[in-house]
Each structure stands twice: as C-alpha cells, then as structure tokens.
Amino acid sequence: MNIESGQLLFYVSGSIAVLASLFVVTNKNAVHALLYLVVSLLALAMCFYLLGAPFAAALQIIVYAGAIMVLFVFAVMIFNINQTDIDREQQWLTWQSWVGPSLLAMILLGEIVFVLLSQQNWATNPSSVTQIELVDARAVGSLLFGPYLLAVEIASFLLLAGLVGGYHLAKELPKKTTTQGGSQ
C-alpha cells in the first residue's frame, strides 16, 4: 500500500466522520440524523482499518453500524416522529441555542489541540509518528480469551444488566393500574 495514499485516506475518512457527526447533531429529522450517524460510524471503521485494526473495523460495521443502529431505527419507528416534532425542533435550532455550547466546545477543542501539538508530549515514546502494522483478529482473539477472559465474563454481565433493565423499563405496565401515572 502506498504510504501517501494511506495517510490521505485516513484524513479523508476522518473528515467524513467529523462532517457526518456534525450533520447528526444539527439535523432536524431523526431518520436523516441516524443515517448520518451510520456514515460517521462507517467512516470510523475505515479509520480503524487504516490504523491496522481490521477486526475492530469489522466489528464497528457489524455491531455498531449494524446492530446498534437498528435499535435506534426501531426506536424511531416506535416513536413515529412526525412533522410537528420536526417543526418544533426547528424552532429550537436557532443560532442562539448553539452559541453557548459551541463556544464551550471550541474552547475545549482549542485546549486539546494545543496540548496535542505542543512539544514534550510523549515521555516514553518520543517518536510521535507511528508505523502502522496489522494487528489481526487472531492476536485480538487470543488476548481476549487469554488474560482478558474475566473481562469477557463481566461484559456478559453488563449486557445482562442492559437486557434486564431495558426489558423492565420497556415492557407494558401492569394492567390493573387505576390512577394513570404522569397524568398529562
């Protein structure tokens, strides 16, 4: 692979990720925003691949851009967001509501970029340029089910917590309710 083109590809897909994320945040329509989010995730998957993590890239596409986004899509379908929602959101999206958070984020961003680009960043690894080499699925797998075995178990408990919690919250309320909660 040509070194120059690889680097170029990274910047391009990185920019796509940033742009798509910007669209997610500024979009009025939930479905459109979701699509942009998928694009952003895919662009990041590309970055992962270029950084020598093909396994993570694949997972990003399958699990993140695939499974998790499908969840979102289902949710949007359930909510059935209509035109009034979009109109109202439009009202909110005036420039005033953006100034504060954007300014805040800009300051943070400025600080981080300053830190990143200033000198003496890396104490142990002075060469701040990385020579990308492939870390393949086999390496990840043997690590995951070697020293990280317990972490996998905990992750399963974590998903169990998500499952039980999600199930409990989302399932129908018991029928015999006499006073309707929320009252609006």
Partner: peptide, 10 residues
C-alpha cells in the same frame, strides 16, 4: 502508512 498520532487524537 504513517499517521501522526496527534492527528488521530485531534
């Protein structure tokens, strides 16, 4: 391929 790590963190 080389990507400066700083750029990645940016």
């Amino acid at each position: 391929m080389t990507v400066p790590i700083e750029h990645g963190f940016v």
